[in-house]
Structures are given as structure tokens and as C-alpha cells.
Simulated scan of single mutants.
Amino acid sequence: MTRFRDFLGADGFARSDTELPESAKRFPDGAQCRVEIPSVEGPEVLDAVLDEARRRNVRVHRVSQGSGGMLLTSGELRAMAATAREAAIEVSLFARPLAGWANSAASLASGAGALAAQARGTEQIVHCLEDIERSVEAGIRSVLITDIGLLDIASRLRAAGEFPASLRFKISVQMGLSNPVSARLAQRLGADTLNVPTDLGLGELAAIRAATDIPLDIYIESPDDQGGLVRHMEIAEIVRVTAPVYLKFGLRNAPNIYPSGTHLAPVATALARERVRRAEIGLEFLARQLPGAVMSELPAADLAVPEAGEQV
């Protein structure tokens, strides 16, 4: 196996997952870490996150959402964009629909779960691009992508000026890129930030960091359907070896609320407030274990903060 390890090393990859070097990479402002709160499914939930963050003195840099821009009204999209613009934070909305919400029996089969996050056929590629365009028109400047073909075509549309140059592509955990070679491929195709699978060990994370320059998004606590890991005690080492990193605070032992809507607003709001509380706990451990860790201030110039939307 030595020649294969040597080949990886010559191409800039780690030769194994056994070493934990400190990452010297940083966000453009020199920071090592930022905070992301996921499952922020609409304007009411975003308001709750910001309120709870102020109350707990938790600095939130990005919120993300799983139901897709397609399940928000135009008014709700513009409201989220306006609120986030005022708070100087990034909002990242899923690009949907995908196979798991369509007429794909295979995506629901026990042995084919990975299909659920793929864009099925040409029509879903087109529909996802339309979903991205609709979010962009409302001012959103960050979208979650799960399908590598969609990433490729969306990135080329951005390069051609069909999507704004300020639009960021956040790779979802559901793309499942679990090794440094795949992670670098996503970066090459236009990914701006990469949510890695929730269960990667520190050595595996360090190898992906060595292979890529874009920020990694790492669940410190993950929902049950993504493994249910609670990694608060590892937070300092995660920051040390994977910077620049978005520390993502999901929630174990919580219901899956996708696709969300007003019928689930009280539940989504309560879960969001608890995610901010979990972030406070994680940041307390970070301060204890790595007191010199540098977190971005707000505003941060490179965040994909929503812009003014098109007039309607």
C-alpha cells in the first residue's frame, strides 16, 4: 500500500488518517471558527434564533434551512433576507425538489437511502435551478446543494453570469463526501463550503482539511437521522485541526420537521431556541479547552449576507 500512500502524498493529500496536525488555514478575517444554526425554516424561526442568540450572548454567523426555498412564499423569502441583512448573518436555503420528495420508490427503499438527496432526471435539475433563482430574486445569496451534477451546472451558470457572483454554494451533509479526494472534487466544481458527514473522526477530518481550502461545516451535535452524535467535548480539537470551520449545532432526540410549514411553526421555533442553547454549551467548552480560539466578529465581509431583492 505504500505506493498508493506515496501517490496521495505527492498530490497534496494526507497519507493516512492517523495524524492530527493543527490547521493553519483561516477565514479571510483571520478567524478559526463560526457558528451555524440549522433547521431555521422560516421568518418566525429566524426571529427566535436571533432573539435567543442575543439573550445567551451567542454569536450566530449563519443559519440554514432544510425544506427548500420552494416551500417559502415570496414574502417569506424576502422577510428572511431582510432580517438576516439587518443582522449581518448568512442565510442558506436548500435547493429542492429532490428524489426523496418525488415519485422515486427506490429512494425510499432500505438499501438505497443515498438516492433521496439526488436530483432525479433532467426535470429535477431544472426545478432545483429554478428554486435557486427564486431565492436569489428575493435577495438570498447562499444555497444548499446535495447533488454533485447540480453543483457543477449551478457553478457554471454562476461563472456565466446567470447567477450572481456573490452566490455561495454550501454542500449539504447529504452529499456524503467522506474522503479528501471527493472533498477536493467538490471544491474544484465550485463548492464554497462543505458540510462533511457527521461521524468522521478527527484524523479523517484533518485529512479533508489538508486537501481543501474552503470552510468545513461540522455538526457538533447532529440530528438522529444524521447519526445523533453529541461531540461537545471534541469541539476544541475540531477547531484546532479543521479551521476554518462552521460549528453546526443540530439537536439529537428531536423530531424531523421536513418539510416544514406554519403547521409546525411552534415546534420548529422551540427546537431552534434549544439549538442556540446547545451552541452556548459548546462555546463554553471551547473557551475552557482552547481559550485562544478566534471566532469571527459580525459583520464579516465574506459572509453571504442577503442582498436587496428584486422589486415585485
Rank of each mutant, 00 (worst) to 15 (best):
R55L: 00
V143F: 11
T18Y: 06
G149N: 05
A81N: 11
A165L: 05
D29P: 12
R184C: 11
L71M: 09
S107D: 13
R158I: 09
A106R: 15
L205H: 14
L71H: 03
R188H: 02
A24H: 02
E44P: 06
A81I: 07
R231F: 02
V181S: 08
A87N: 04
E133C: 01
C128T: 02
A109M: 10
L251P: 02
D51T: 15
A265R: 07
S104V: 01
V91G: 10
A211F: 02
A87S: 13
A117D: 11
G309P: 12
A119N: 02
E130D: 11
Q32F: 00
V173G: 09
R34P: 08
G121V: 04
A183T: 07
C33G: 08
V40E: 05
Y246Q: 04
A99T: 00
G227C: 14
E274H: 08
A207F: 05
G111M: 06
V312H: 11
E130P: 04
I220R: 00
R168P: 02
S260R: 01
P164L: 05
A308R: 08
R26D: 01
G203S: 00
K25M: 15
H263K: 13
R15G: 11
A154S: 03
E133L: 04
A87V: 12
L200T: 08
I171D: 04
L247R: 06
A82Q: 13
Q187P: 06
S39A: 14
Q65H: 11
T2C: 07
L115P: 15
D47V: 13
V63I: 08
L303P: 09
R56A: 10
V45T: 00
G9N: 08
Q187T: 08
Q65S: 14
F169Y: 09
L129M: 13
L50F: 09
A10F: 02
L247E: 10
A119Y: 01
L185H: 00
G292M: 09
G309A: 09
Q65C: 10
R96E: 01
A14R: 03
R5S: 08
D47P: 13
V60D: 03
T18I: 08
A186E: 12
I208K: 10
A243L: 09
N256E: 07
T146M: 08
N195P: 07
M295R: 08
Q124D: 10
A84M: 03
G100Y: 04
E274Y: 06
L93K: 04
C128D: 01
S178F: 06
I37K: 06
R62N: 06
A95V: 12
S23G: 12
D225V: 05
L286F: 03
A183E: 02
A210Y: 04
